[in-house]
């Protein structure tokens, strides 16, 4: 399945409007270089399909990245960055959908200052309704099941309605579009 360029464009625009940064990466090297340039410190990296496929931990470390894998409970709260993949994305709102049942994935995407998401741009669906059949398959495949729809960084407007970024979750959401990632919508 190929995502039309207009859908990728629509996704990027919506995600940008929601305060995310979208970056098209020509290669895994480019993505790794981007992450290292913007991580700002230690990186927590759960055992997710994207990390394994790209051999991320090793390649980040080889270029001087401080990468923490395994049990992230101690490291995540003070980590500068977390990296995860994305199962798919929704163009209408610029949302990334992330199967987050493994606690490490949740810790890496909720606690660090910034969250890098590796997304295969061929996995962008037009809207939320198009996500329902997949949501249903993810829910019925396993239980428990925890799926996150993420649209932009953590935000609040609870003091005088002034929009302020990064109250509990990541202050920055970087979405890296990389063709060579798995095209499995249900990857786990």
């Amino acid at each position: 399945m190929k995502t039309p360029a207009t859908l990728v464009e629509q996704f990027c625009q919506a995600a940008t409007r929601a305060g995310a940064l979208t970056v098209r990466c020509v290669s895994a090297e480019a993505a790794i270089a981007y992450i290292l340039r913007h991580a700002g410190g230690s990186i927590v990296l759960p055992d997710c399909p994207a990390a394994l496929q790209l051999n991320l931990a090793e390649r980040l470390r080889a270029q001087g990245g401080k990468v923490i894998c395994g049990d992230l409970f101690q490291a995540a709260p003070t980590a500068a960055a977390g990296i995860t993949g994305a199962n798919f994305a929704l163009a209408d709102t610029g949302t990334v959908v992330l199967e987050s049942t493994a606690q490490a994935v949740r810790l890496a995407s909720t606690l660090p200052e910034r969250h890098f998401v590796l997304l295969n741009p061929h996995k962008i669906l037009p809207d939320h309704m198009a996500a329902v059949p997949l949501l249903r398959r993810l829910h019925s495949r396993q239980s428990p099941d925890f799926i996150a729809f993420i649209t932009g960084p953590s935000r609040t407007a609870d003091i005088e309605r002034v929009l302020t970024i990064g109250v509990h979750g990541p202050r920055e959401l970087h979405i890296l579009l990389l063709d060579e990632l798995s095209d499995d919508f249900l990857e786990n």
Binding site: D71, H139, I150, R155, G169
Partner: peptide
């Protein structure tokens, strides 16, 4: 609620997600 197309997070929870 807040005139947003989507909130930052929607969490779909089915059963107790594992912990440590």
């Amino acid at each position: 609620a807040t005139a947003q197309a989507a909130t930052s997070y929607v969490t779909w929870l089915r059963g107790p997600a594992p912990g440590r």
